[in-house]
């Protein structure tokens, strides 16, 4: 069975402390609950969470939805986005099965990056590494006015979305859209013709989520 790997990269720097990080946790919980109700997503989607603050950490390795446990997430420190990009590439190399003559590999992973600020490390090596790989849908989300949209556009030129603020209702709308994107991809990955990298396969985002 080809799995659909989904990597969520979440900014946990100091500026995310409080309502933003609580909203992220809440959003993640709703995302998992909604995906578990969809038989196709439940069958194919596998989820991993990578956080980046003062360091990048894979706090949940690629896990099937039925076995996913909510991780502890707390915010504090700086924003090592570059390191997070390096880490997601490394995790992909370790976790995502490549197709061989004897084994069906996984679908190209989907990546969602959520950040509210500017990286504090040098992101370029991470961006280069990230761009050297082929991903399924890759989306970065500028949560609030403090994020560097031009930089995000270099990471995921396919799609950058913007949230007016990182509050509960806006982030919840964002996670709903991520959920719908995973559900629709899990249904359409089998469809031929277009590759999963194309944005028009994702459902249109709600009004709170602006495409940049």
């Amino acid at each position: 069975m080809r799995r659909l790997p989904v990597y969520l990269l979440v900014d946990v720097s100091g500026s995310m402390h409080g309502e933003p990080i609580e909203s992220v946790k809440n959003g993640l919980q709703l995302l998992v609950a909604a995906l578990r109700k969809d038989p196709q997503a439940l069958e194919t989607a596998y989820l991993s969470v990578i956080t980046f603050g003062s360091s990048a950490q894979q706090i949940v390795p690629l896990t099937e939805l039925s076995a996913f446990n909510m991780p502890e997430i707390s915010a504090g420190g700086c924003t090592v986005l570059g390191e997070a990009l390096q880490l997601v590439c490394k995790c992909r190399e370790n976790e995502v099965t490549k197709t061989t003559a004897e084994q069906k590999g996984d679908w190209r992973p989907m990546v969602f990056i959520l950040t509210d600020g500017v990286p504090t490390d040098d992101p370029q090596p991470g961006i280069d590494k990230f761009r050297s790989m082929k991903w399924g849908a890759s989306v970065s989300c500028a949560a609030g006015p403090g994020a560097d949209k031009a930089l995000l556009d270099k990471i995921t030129p396919e799609c950058v979305v913007e949230l007016a603020s990182a509050d509960q209702s806006t982030l919840s709308a964002f996670f709903k859209w991520v959920t719908a994107s995973i559900v629709s991809t899990s249904k359409s990955i089998n469809e031929s013709g277009t590759s999963t990298g194309s944005m028009d396969q994702l459902p249109p985002p709600p009004p709170e989520v602006q495409i940049v």
Binding site: T99, A101, E102, I189, G193
Partner: peptide
Amino acid sequence: KKIWDVEDEQHDKTLAFG
């Protein structure tokens, strides 16, 4: 089990079902 395209899963599926 037959893999028609080792490089591109999408194309593999298109061939395997088409």
